[in-house]
Every structure is written in structure tokens, then in C-alpha cells.
Computed example of a mutant assay.
Amino acid sequence: MLYRVKGIVIRSMDYGEGNKIITLCTETHGKIGVMARGAKKLKSRHGAITQPFTYGEFVFYRQNGGLGSLNQGEIIESHFSLRSDLLLAAYASYACELLDRSLHDEEVGTFWFTQLKACLEGLTAGKDQQIVIHLFEIKILQASGYGPSFEACVSCGSLEESTRVSPLLGGRLCQRCRHHDHGAITISPGTLRLLSLFEKMDMRRLGNIEVKETTKEELKKVMRAFMDTQLSLNLKSRHFLDQMEKYEI
């Protein structure tokens, strides 16, 4: 069967002497693997379309739910700047690997695609990389069924003000419920407001916002705890990103 889909290359790996296997996050068919024959060759017509982070329209033949075979492709947005800057490439790779590991094959959901597309666009547009990535992490948690609750107490639903958050229980704890997790993290009111905003915000609505470095450090600590506790994914791209951030500092 012949498919024509819009998708983003979230993984690209060499296969054999001249071929590549790419993994696409598509708008309509979930995550799909496609073989691009000859894509490694210098004059290949598939060379550009199979680059990581590329958003394009892909036409491929696929039979009985196996690996597709790429017939042709048209680039909509190459995201070249994400591949030419090492730090941006690290952030984009983390976003793509995070989605790849969270999304099952052919798990259909336009939400996954739109949020990744907006994430890569935000990085390309020069928005604060750390803010973009932390918002994307929350969207991944929500789409995976582990969305945190920062607006109300995750235990009793109270709207009482509190700055204690529990990665283990999945959100904010009020004063009366803080005993449910003695390992909960105390954060500043500013970080809590930002997390509450992220909980409700779509990636496509993120503008250019300025956040203090102290707030970003606290935000990273909290989101790292939520990601490790709720998803427990060992991602190579995150280890590399950590090293890059240390180098940048």
C-alpha cells in the first residue's frame, strides 16, 4: 500500500553500505519506520529528506505493517540550523529521543506530532532552549498519562497555596498532605507559577519569555526529578546534553 504522510525524522541510522532507516513521527499514522535506499550516497535524491529533525512529506510503500520503503519526499522545513549548532542539536536530539522512547509504534495521536513540531520550531526561532525543552517534557508526561498537577494538591485537590511538589505523587502537595511524601521538593513561588503555566500551555503558544537563571536551575532540578520518577528513561541524548550545558557554562 502506498502512503503519503507529513512527518518529522526523529531517528536516522545507517543500514548496509548505502541505505538509511529513518523513524518518522507522523501527523496521521503515529511512529513509522521507513527504509531509504541509497540515501547515504552523495548524489542520492533521498539524502536531504532523511536528515534528523527534517519536517517533510514522505511517500512510501508499505506491506503488512512492516518497514516502509521510501519512494519520494519533499522537504517542508529542513531545520538545518538545529544540525549546524552543537548545543541546539543536543536539545533537538533529546526532544526527538524522548518522544521516540515514549511513543509506541503506530500509536496515533496528532498531539505528539504538533508538540514536537512546535518544539523544534521554538528551538529554531531562538527561544530559550531550556524553557522550550522543559515545556516539551511536561507535554510528554501529559501525553504518556503522567501529567503533573501544579494547580491543585495532587492528593486532596485543595487550592491552598503551597510550594511543595512531589515527583513521586505527580504534583503539588498542600500543607495538610505534605506528610504523604517526605521527599517532596520545596520550590520558589516563581518556579511554581511557571510550572502551573506549563501545565496548561500548548507548545504552539510559547512566546519569548525571560526567566531568571536561579529559576531555570530550580526548574531543571524539578523536571529532572519528574522525568526520572515517572518515565525512568535512560537517554543517551540527555547525558550528552548535560555535558554540553556544563561546557556552555
Rank of each mutant, 00 (worst) to 15 (best):
I49M: 06
I49Q: 03
I49D: 00
I49W: 01
Q51L: 15
P52W: 00
F53L: 07
T54G: 00
Y55I: 00
Y55A: 00
E57C: 09
E57I: 15
E57P: 01
F58G: 02
V59R: 15
F60D: 09
F60Y: 15
R62W: 05
N64C: 07
G65N: 10
L67Q: 08
L67V: 05
G68W: 01
G68C: 05
G68T: 05
S69H: 04
L70T: 02
N71R: 13
N71K: 11
N71T: 11
Q72Y: 04
G73M: 01
E74M: 06
E74D: 09
E74C: 00
E74G: 06
I75W: 11
E77S: 09
S78W: 02
S81Q: 08
L82I: 06
R83T: 14
S84A: 14
S84V: 08
L86M: 11
L86I: 14
L87F: 12
L87M: 11
L88Y: 06
L88C: 09
A89Y: 12
Y91C: 03
Y91H: 07
A92P: 03
A92W: 03
Y94P: 06
Y94S: 05
C96R: 03
C96M: 06
L98V: 04
L99W: 05
D100Y: 12
R101H: 14
S102E: 12
S102N: 09
S102W: 10
L103M: 10
L103Q: 09
H104G: 15
H104K: 15
E107A: 15
E107Q: 14
E107L: 05
E107V: 02
V108E: 12
G109Q: 11
G109I: 08
